[in-house]
Every structure is written in C-alpha cells, then in structure tokens.
Design a protein around this nucleic acid. Sequence first.
DNA 1: CTAGACCAGATTGGATCCGATATACAATAT
DNA 2: ATATTGTATATCGGATCCAATCTGGTCTAG
Lengths: 229, 229
Amino acid sequence: MVLKGVDVSKTVSAGGLVFEALRRAIIEGELKDGDPLRQDEIARLFNTSRIPVREAITMLEQQGLVKNQRYKGAVVVGLSVAEASEIFDFRCIIDAHVIRAAVPHMTPALIAEARAICTAFASASDPLHWGDLNRSFHLKLYQASDLPFHLASLSNAMDRLDRYVRAQLLLTDGHARANAEHLEILEACARGDADGAADLTVAHIRGAKDTLREHLAKIQAKFGAAETR
Amino acid sequence: MVLKGVDVSKTVSAGGLVFEALRRAIIEGELKDGDPLRQDEIARLFNTSRIPVREAITMLEQQGLVKNQRYKGAVVVGLSVAEASEIFDFRCIIDAHVIRAAVPHMTPALIAEARAICTAFASASDPLHWGDLNRSFHLKLYQASDLPFHLASLSNAMDRLDRYVRAQLLLTDGHARANAEHLEILEACARGDADGAADLTVAHIRGAKDTLREHLAKIQAKFGAAETR
DNA sequence: CTAGACCAGATTGGATCCGATATACAATAT
DNA sequence: ATATTGTATATCGGATCCAATCTGGTCTAG
C-alpha cells in the first residue's frame, strides 16, 4: 500500500462550497451592502439546485454576513459606524489576549513564516491581496496561542470587518502604516515581549478603527446622513 | 386601532422553530454529548419534512453545538476540560468588558428587575430553572451595555457552556454560592462601581470554572481517562 | 385624476422523490 | 476458522415539484 490516502469525509458538500464562495465574495467586497442573493441565480452559477444555496445562506446568516427575510430573500448586511466600532473594540480585547497567550509558544520557524508574510505584504503591488496577507499575518502569529475558540470568534469578527479594513488599507498611507506596525509587532514577538506585542496590536487595530471612522465621517458629511439603519 | 401589532416578518420559519427546540434541548442537557440527531425522526416529531430539520442542523453546526459528518449524520458535541476552560476564560474577558460598559447606563428600574431575577433564583426550588434564571440575571445587567455584537458572541459562549454551568449549580453549595455572588455583583452595580462589578463577575465566572474543573477531574480519576477527544 | 382592488410574474419555503454512502450482516473462499 | 466480499437496510445529500408570499403593474370606481 503505497497510495497516499486522503480523508474523503473532509471533502466539502455542495452547500459548503457555495458558502465559501459567497463568504469570500462578501468579505472581499465583491458583493456589497444591500446586494440581494437570488437563490436560483446562484444555483445556476454553481450548477446545483437551490437546496445547497439555501444551506449556504443559512450559514451566512448565522455568521451575520447576510440577513434573510422570509419570502423576500437574503441581502448582504453592512455595518454602521457604531457597529464597526464595536467590533473593532471586540477585536482589541480578543487580539490582545490571544497574542499574549501566543508569544511564549512562538517558535523561530513561526516567526520566520510570519516575517515572510510580512515582506510579501510590504512588496505586494496588487491591492487585492493586501487584505488576505494582512489577515494571514495576524492569524499566523495567533496560531501559536492554542486557543481555538478565541480564534473562531476572532475569525467571525474579522469576516464582518474585512471589507472595511480592506478599504482602509487603500487610503493614503494605510498600507505603508500597516506594514510598519506589523514589523513592530513582529519584533516584539521575536524578543518574547508578550505585553509589548499586545499593546502594539491594540494600537494597530485602534488605529485602523480611527482612520476608518474619520473616513466614513467624511463620506457621510458629503452625502448626508445615509443609511444609518 | 387597539390591536397590538406583531411584526409578521419575524414569525419563524419551520427551520427556525426546530433550531430553537434542538438548541434548548442541547443547552439544557436533554440531548447529551454524542447523541445522534436523526433527520427523519426529528422531522416526524415536528410534523415537517426533513428540509427544515437540515436547516436547523446547519445552524446548530455553525454555533458549534453539533458536528455533522457527511452521510453519517449529526451528533451533539460536548467539551473537553481544556475547551470548557478556554471558553470560561473567554467569558471572563468579555463579561468584564460588557458589564463595565453597562454599569454607567443602568437605570434604577433595570437594577430592580435584576434584583427580582436574583430573588427568584434564590428561592427557586426547581433546579431545572436555575440555569435559565442565572443566565437571565447576567443578561439583564448586560442589557444596559448597548453592545450587541459582544452580547451575541457571549450568547454563543454561554450556549456552549450552559450544560456544564447547570451541572455546576447542582454541586454542593453551587446554587447558594452563585446566589451570594450575584448579590455582590448587583450591589456593585447599584452603587455605580463598574470596576468592582467587573472584578466580581470575573471572580464569579472563574469560580464556576474552577469548581467545574475539580468536579470533572474527580470524575475522570474515577472512570479513567475517558473521551479527551 | 387618484386610491384601492386585483391579477400575473417572480421568488422563497417546504414536501417528496431519487441517487449516493455508510453500516451491519450473510455468504464464500482460502 | 478467519478474512474478504457481496448484499440489504438505514440514512443522508441533492433535485424536482408544489404551495405560500411578495412585488409591480393594471383596471375600475368615485
């Protein structure tokens, strides 16, 4: 028996596939706030019936990415400034706790991997990948924490915020500043300074929150008080 | 128009109904770790087809209450000691943050309501309601925080832990001690002491965690190293 | 000309049907 | 006797079909 086995039970169902695709589209901003999710349109796109699509939509609804109204359909939900701020605050708390737990367990290999992601982020010319690399960097560091529940919860918070973080990276200095802060965090981790890494991470997230708030305030001043929901 | 209107769009779908029922059964411990969820058995129970049942199961899976294995079915998932500990830690952090935010916005009316729940908890003879009243008490206090995302996240953590918290309340002194600690928290809230309330809440949760750990350790010592997963 | 009834198409929710997979057990070969 | 293979049944995932509801436009009454 030389064949390399593969756990077939891990192959995703059709519903899981559709879910992943829709989730990606939403967090990358491809599907925007308010966009409707038509079941049979999506079903045709994936060559399935509507059943797996409905499964995907209920998953998305549980994650808070879409809202389903009975007999009306599902729409992508965006965040008000207040909601986004609250989730940023949530991230400050959990990210700090997680990285503080992670630092003592970081191996040189993990630091090296994180550094590689960091430089990839710095040199990526395509803004489309910034969001992914940013997220990968943070998650790589957190990987050492061995706190799966915290990470799952964080993952959900990131999913809700990602669209806005990506927008923020595109702002003036957003990318450069994020990169500088990543390097600082990385160095704190490398020298085993858990509290330092936590403080820097909090500052990093709080900075993203504040610049995004300013940005949204400007937009709202321009277009009037739109969709406060 | 004297009729009290009801938002018909909020009327639950069949899937939502099944979900709520199964969720309740799981968090109350009626369905135990490892119990299988047979789709057509449940469908018969609720007089529906299997479609809404499947919807309910995907929701439960997103919440981490069950695990679905392709072509095998869904089973209720329990927590190892390590997992439960991690979620208790999560609660310490979030509960503290939420109650600290809530205290400044607490009205005398809200304090009174919380006190009512507290006395109901103290005098409830039926241990079946202890879990609900315990949860209601905490959520009532947190209601003033105006942090919906934090509360949703907390709700999920509570769902995962509730079975174990209920078990812990049944242990010697569990109920009495919880009641005493609730009163302390309530008094701190009443006098506007946010930090005090936060500290007492953390101690309250940490206490539950520790007694539960001891309890489980004893059980494991008795039955051997069972199901560490 | 406008407000409200009403009809038609679109869309979702749920039921039923069918193919795929797992599990348990019987049959068979070595 | 044991291990392997075939088969029967239970159960699940997905497709298709039907019913319930929403939406938009049209028509009529005032």
